[in-house]
Simulated scan of single mutants.
Amino acid sequence: MKFLILFTLITGLFVNLASAQVRDTVIKSTDSVKTQVIKPVRKDTTTKVMSRQDSMKAAYVNPGKVAGRKAVFRSMIIPGWGQLYNMQILDDGYGTRAGKSQTLQKVYTGAKIAAIYAGFTVLTMSYIESTKQYKLFLKELQYRDANNGAPDPNGPFGSRYSTSGITNGKDTYRRNRQIVLGSYLLVYAANVIDAYVAARLHFFNIDDELSFKVSPSVITSNSLYGFNGTPALKLSLTF
């Protein structure tokens, strides 16, 4: 009887130890596994694709350069058109002069347009007159060459001028025509340059806060023989 009770106790002890070992093993295996939390994905979420343009920094566009190119293009086609474009910029209120009185600037721009066409008009009249006089002197010279130096009795000069004087007059008016043609190019170039400069200056900072300061300074330089200092003036601009 005692042996049976002892056997029962030993058997129950082993059963309890075995169950405890199984339970401990299950707990440890569960703890050793690292769980990873996965966030749910919303169905309405759209993935934004990064393009090359989005990844690059937007390039800076200088409005002064753009306006200058447009003014030059217009002035090259029709003289004075670039100046009219600059007046349009004033009306649109672009640039650093926006909000300020533009009356004097418009009058000045209009005067430049009038000066451009006045210059072309004067040059045209000069070219016509030089061509007319050149043909008269040339005709007189051709007549004298064909008649042994005798002046044309029906010509406008008669015997007032010698043959050398007629030759000099012909060369002078021919040279005047060439000068007029060169002056055409100068006025045309001045028209283009003025339109470009005015368009660029319209976007420059010319407000009341712009100032400059001149102060004495020294320009230093190192040479083979030692230190050299040259007196100079230092110009400082404040925007």
Rank of each mutant, 00 (worst) to 15 (best):
V41C: 07
S130M: 08
K43V: 10
D152C: 03
L13W: 00
I5T: 14
D207K: 12
T8Y: 13
A189W: 08
S75H: 01
L4D: 04
G80H: 01
D152A: 01
F157P: 04
V15H: 00
H202V: 00
D91W: 10
S162G: 00
T163M: 03
S51E: 12
I27F: 14
S236N: 12
S217G: 04
I77T: 03
L181M: 15
N176D: 15
Y127M: 14
A111L: 08
F204T: 07
S130R: 10
N168Y: 15
Y143G: 13
D171K: 10
V72E: 12
M125G: 11
V180K: 14
M50V: 08
K213T: 02
S164T: 06
N176Y: 04
G119E: 03
K112V: 15
T30I: 04
Y60A: 01
V33S: 09
L186Y: 03
Y196Q: 07
V26G: 03
L17M: 14
S51Y: 11
G95V: 01
A20K: 02
M56A: 12
A71H: 11
K2H: 10
F157Y: 10
G12K: 15
L233M: 15
P216Q: 09
I77E: 05
Q88N: 12
K57C: 03
G99L: 05
K34I: 08
Q36M: 13
F73K: 01
G93W: 07
S215M: 07
I78D: 06
K106H: 09
G158F: 11
K106D: 14
V72L: 14
T109R: 07
N222H: 11
A190C: 10
A18P: 02
S32Q: 14
V218H: 01
K2T: 09
R144E: 00
H202C: 02
N148C: 08
M50K: 14
S19N: 14
R174W: 12
L141R: 05
K48F: 15
S75F: 00
I116H: 02
R174E: 04
N62Y: 09
V218N: 03
T220N: 01
I27R: 13
N168E: 14
V37P: 11
F3Y: 15
Y134P: 06
G155P: 01
Y117K: 08
S159Y: 07
D44W: 10
A198Q: 09
I179H: 05
Q133H: 10
N16M: 07
D44P: 01
Y196P: 00
P40D: 12
K106L: 12
T46H: 06
G229V: 12
S211N: 00
L84N: 06
L9W: 05
G93S: 02
L210H: 05
A71Y: 01
K65N: 10
S221P: 01
L185W: 09
L186G: 02
L224E: 13
A59S: 10
M87H: 01
